[in-house]
Design a protein around this nucleic acid. Structure first.
Length: 665
DNA sequence: TTAGGGTTAG
């Protein structure tokens, strides 16, 4: 038998009846005085006087209105008044029944007042209600919240009541202490003992299984749910979905989801979020559409969960429609949904819209600021990013966490602010891998390739592909082909199954006139069955996404697009920069510039979008040097802004310049 | 009396 920890004796100050008599004789007096942070003693007395008048009107013969009053006060967060009401019940001799005690215990919990909780426990024992199921569950919760889970377990074991509520409460406490295994063990024990299992206990154990990533335990709980006919209780179903996702089996989750007879907005949101996390953005958007066509109206959480998908595939039209939905339906604009909106706008290329949402936010949290800093770097607006970071530093309500520092380092990298970047890096107490990679990116993109190499050695990042790729970016910007080649070799050693490394290698050989070597690596890619991602670019127009591959002639307007591009190239007298030595696409090298996917998508934008707005294109690889130069010239010739998002950042081409370049360099 | 979904990077 477990014993109650010594720190938590049940304290019975005065027997309840005697205490009531005593209080009545000597006039009303607080049950006990515990200084509260926000309650001044004087206020207590005044409150008591005011409250007494209210209490005089409540009949002492009936506990029901008293219980209701405690519950209402508790629900409204008037904890102090709830305690007062309980005190008055005792003082006036109102019968404290089995409905009063759980409410009094909840009051103690809400007040964080363990001595009060123990006193109420004493009252329950004295009044003979300590074995009542409602009281036991409330006691378990009170001890678990205010003392420790061991004392809660002691209460659970001591009383013979083993209903699903007391079990769920104890399991919840185990989860709060990050001990999911104990919750699962307890569930198995309850099943063995033949105790009643309800939907809440199932939901709770499924959370525990998910935390443990234990598909085995989760499947067992699923079996029990099926046996009990609770599998399709919406709470249980949604918990099952989540369990399968957390255990890494999206397949099981999807299969279960398909068989669910009733799905609600939570079921959809759970699965949408899972797809987003897996990078399956189109699937998440399709699911969202399916939810709407099933007649379920999106709410703020469901919108927040799908917005990251819109941002990542630059589906700005979809993102803006979601923003409109929120406005039209007058849904709550809380920080979570506002942050998701800002992030979507940043990633879709609408910096100004993100700024607008940010400006309208009443309460900005750490995520809001970080989204702005990171978003600015994505758009090459490093100075603005640093400005937001300063704003974050001055906001006393937010903490500067690792993500915020990473964002500001990226802001420094995007505008090559080496001094500032070093200053921020030195401010970080324990730099993490991400910070170090951002530092490599800052040094390398600023042309300090020796320093970047030394930094890699100092922080032992030689075997970290992300750090090497950051160094390679610098080599690409500053045409350091020799160092670049060494980095590519290192990447091939580290990730021998990553086809993109071999594409880099064969491009390097092809550029330096070593066709045999280039051929060798291309054959090697084929022999190994590796499939490098082919390059694609896409553009939204009139509710449709138009996608183009390299040398694509399948689009109905292909002829017109090529013609347009050739005219422009001639007019601009573009001397294309055809250095592919450190480029990450194979097929582009042997294709004329006018056939590159980003050029075709931009041409489509030019011939289809008559108005003078920006042309927005997304590419699934890096933009090649040749296209980069050509688009600068086209933006000047056509007097239009062209925005290309590649895998690294946004390129805003305006009047012959690109946002990714620093004029002084 | 106990319970299920949302935002930032990589």
């Amino acid at each position: 038998m477990e014993s109650l920890p010594s720190s938590s004796p049940i304290h019975l100050p005065v027997p309840l009846v005697e205490q009531t008599l005593l209080e009545n004789t000597n006039g009303p007096r607080p049950l006990r005085i515990t200084p509260q942070e926000n309650v001044q003693p004087l206020g207590r007395i005044r409150n008591s006087v005011i409250a007494r008048k209210v209490f005089d009107e409540i009949p002492v013969s009936d506990s029901l209105p008293w219980n209701r009053r405690i519950e209402t006060l508790l629900r409204n967060g008037e904890i102090r008044n709830a305690i007062l009401t309980y005190e008055q019940m005792l003082l006036r001799g109102v019968r404290v029944d089995r409905h009063t005690l759980p409410r009094a215990l909840a009051t103690a919990r809400a007040a964080g007042d363990f001595p009060l909780g123990k006193q109420v426990h004493g009252h329950a024992l004295k009044l003979g209600h300590a074995s009542d199921p409602y009281v036991v569950s409330s006691l378990i919760e009170m001890y678990g919240s205010l003392d420790c889970v061991e004392s809660a377990r002691w209460v659970f074991n001591k009383f013979p009541v083993r209903n699903p509520v007391s079990w769920s409460v104890l399991a919840k406490l185990y989860l709060a202490e990050n001990k999911p295994k104990l919750a699962v063990d307890l569930f198995n024990k309850m099943v063995k003992l033949g105790s009643q299992i309800d939907s809440v206990s199932l939901g709770t154990v499924l959370v525990a299984c998910g935390r443990m990533r234990s598909l085995h335990d989760g499947r067992y709980a699923h079996q029990i749910a099926r046996k009990l006919g609770l599998e399709f209780d919406i709470f249980v179903s949604n918990s099952l979905l989540r369990m399968y996702i957390e255990c890494g089996s999206l397949k099981d989750a999807q299969a279960f989801f398909s068989g669910m007879p009733g799905k609600d907005v939570i079921s959809y949101t759970t699965l949408i979020q899972a797809h987003v996390k897996m990078g399956e953005f189109n699937d998440s958007l399709k699911l969202f559409q399916q939810m709407v066509s099933d007649g379920i109206s999106p709410d703020p959480p469901s919108v927040s969960s799908v917005l990251p998908a819109c941002g990542r595939i630059t589906a700005s039209k979809c993102g803006r429609e979601l923003h409109c939905h929120l406005l039209r339906k007058e849904l709550e604009f809380n920080p979570k949904v506002q942050n998701a909106l800002m992030d979507m706008y940043m990633k879709s290329g609408f910096l100004e819209y993100a700024l607008k949402v940010f400006g309208e936010m009443k309460e900005k949290d750490a995520v809001s600021w970080t989204v702005m800093v990171a978003g600015c770097s994505l758009h090459g607006e490093g100075n603005l990013g640093v400005h937001f970071f300063s704003g974050m530093e001055q906001d006393p309500r937010v903490d500067l966490d690792g993500l915020a520092y990473n964002a500001v380092l990226q802001a420094c990298a995007s505008s090559r602010m080496v001094g500032k970047g070093k200053y921020y890096f030195n401010q970080i107490r324990a730099p993490e891998l991400g910070h170090c990679i951002s530092m490599v990116s800052l040094l390398a993109s600023s042309g300090l390739l020796d320093e970047a190499t030394a930094f890699i050695e100092k922080w032992k990042l030689e075997r970290t592909p992300e750090a090497l790729r950051a160094l390679l970016d610098g080599c690409r910007i500053h045409r350091e082909d020799k160092l670049g080649k060494r980095v590519i070799d290192q990447l091939c050693d580290l990730q021998p199954l990553n086809p993109e490394n071999y594409v880099l290698l064969l491009n390097w050989y092809a550029h330096f006139d070593k066709p045999d070597m280039a051929r060798k690596y291309r054959e090697m890619i084929l022999d190994m069955g590796l499939k490098p991602r082919r390059a694609f670019s896409w553009i939204e127009h009139r509710n449709k996404v138009h996608a183009f591959g390299t040398g694509d002639v399948s689009h109905p307007r292909s002829q017109r697009l090529y013609w347009e591009l050739e005219q422009l190239m001639e007019k601009a007298r573009i001397s294309a920069d055809l250095d592919y030595s450190l480029h990450d696409v194979d097929e582009e090298r042997e294709c004329p510039l006018v056939g590159h996917s980003e050029m075709l998508a931009v041409a489509f934008g030019l011939v289809s979008k008559e108005s003078g707005g920006a042309i927005r294109v997304t590419k699934n690889h890096r933009i090649c040097n040749g296209c980069h130069g050509a688009l600068k010239a086209i933006s000047r010739l056509k007097g239009r802004e062209v925005i290309v998002k590649d895998t690294r950042c946004f390129h805003h081409f305006r009047d012959g310049f690109c946002s990714c370049e620093v004029p002084s360099l």
